[in-house]
Each structure stands twice: as structure tokens, then as C-alpha cells.
Amino acid sequence: MSSTEVLNVPDSELSSEEIIARNLKVVEAHFHNETPETVDKALELYGPDIVWEAPARGMVYTDPAEVKEAYLGIFRTVRYHRLTTLRRFATEQFVFDDQIGDVTIIGDEMPNLPYGPGTRLNARVSHCFEMKDGKIVREIVYELFREAGSAVDNDDIPADAQVQVFP
């Protein structure tokens, strides 16, 4: 099957390799559409019973409308300067993604964010996506906020890490 053909096929009809490739493609598309202009496309990749969690901030959302509002709040709170993808890999059921965001806090619409506007951070953000039939059914985002240049702002960045710089 081509990659387009496997998008709407149940996992049970695909090989392990096809499921893994699809899961990685779905998560890549999700991240690509995490913008104010295309967030609805990112949300279309969720299953009907989505659970979205940010444990460090104590946030759990199960209503797609609340997930969208949470994303819009993030967009109004965080300005990205650079995003470094350290690693991403998948199994038939999960995708793990590990990134560092060089960001400035510009708003106050992320509940329980421990930093205020004007703070420059290096945010280590690891995602665990649970996948089923080509949809994200659970997204857990582990956010580790560290002030840029502080004693805890220290990471081992692989030589092949992908860096995206934002204007």
C-alpha cells in the first residue's frame, strides 16, 4: 500500500512497519500544524476520545474544544526562537518525541506555568503519543521549564539533532 492508502486503514490490516511509518507521519503532521493558522488540521489527527495531558502543570483535557483552547493559549503565551528535535521514534502503539524549545514567555494563558512574561526559557519538552488506527488517542507532554543560562539549563544534544530557527 502507498502511504496515502494507509491513512484510513485500521492497524489490524497493516504490517508492523506500515503502522510505525504511519504513526511517525501522523505525529510529524501534528507538529507541523501546531500553529494558530492550522491548529484545526493538528486536531483532526486526534481520535474521537482524545486525552491531552501536561502533568507538570496539572492539566488534563478530554474535550477537543478545550484542547484547541489550550493550544491557542500556548500560542499566545510562548514565542519560539528555536526548536531542537533531539530524537523521535515509534512503535506500533506509541511515538516518543524529545525536543528543546528556546522560547520567551510573552503572555499568561498557560495554566500553572511557573514563569511570567519576559522570561527566556529553554523548555525541554518530551511527548508520548499513544496511537490507534492512524490517530492520536492520548498526548502526554512533559514540560521541563528552565531559565535560559541557569544552572539547570543543561542538555546533551546529539550531533544529528535537527534545529529549526523561527524569525
Rank of each mutant, 00 (worst) to 15 (best):
E37A: 15
Y142V: 07
Q99E: 12
P55H: 13
E130F: 00
R82W: 00
Q164G: 12
V163H: 10
V27F: 00
R120D: 08
V103P: 03
V95D: 01
T91H: 02
I106Y: 09
K41C: 06
L86S: 04
V6D: 00
R57K: 11
L83D: 06
R120W: 05
A161W: 00
H81P: 13
S16R: 01
L14C: 06
T77W: 04
K25Q: 14
A56C: 07
P48L: 08
R146K: 13
V9N: 03
A56M: 09
R124P: 02
N8M: 10
C128W: 11
T84G: 07
D97I: 06
G47M: 05
Y71N: 02
I19V: 14
S12W: 14
A42W: 03
S126H: 02
R57F: 12
A148W: 06
S16G: 11
N33M: 01
D97F: 01
Y61H: 10
P114T: 12
V95F: 07
L83V: 14
V51Q: 09
T85K: 05
Y142R: 07
D63R: 13
E147D: 12
N33R: 04
R146W: 02
Q164R: 14
L43W: 07
L113G: 00
M110R: 01
G107Y: 02
A65L: 13
P55D: 08
V163C: 12
M131E: 00
S2F: 15
Q162I: 14
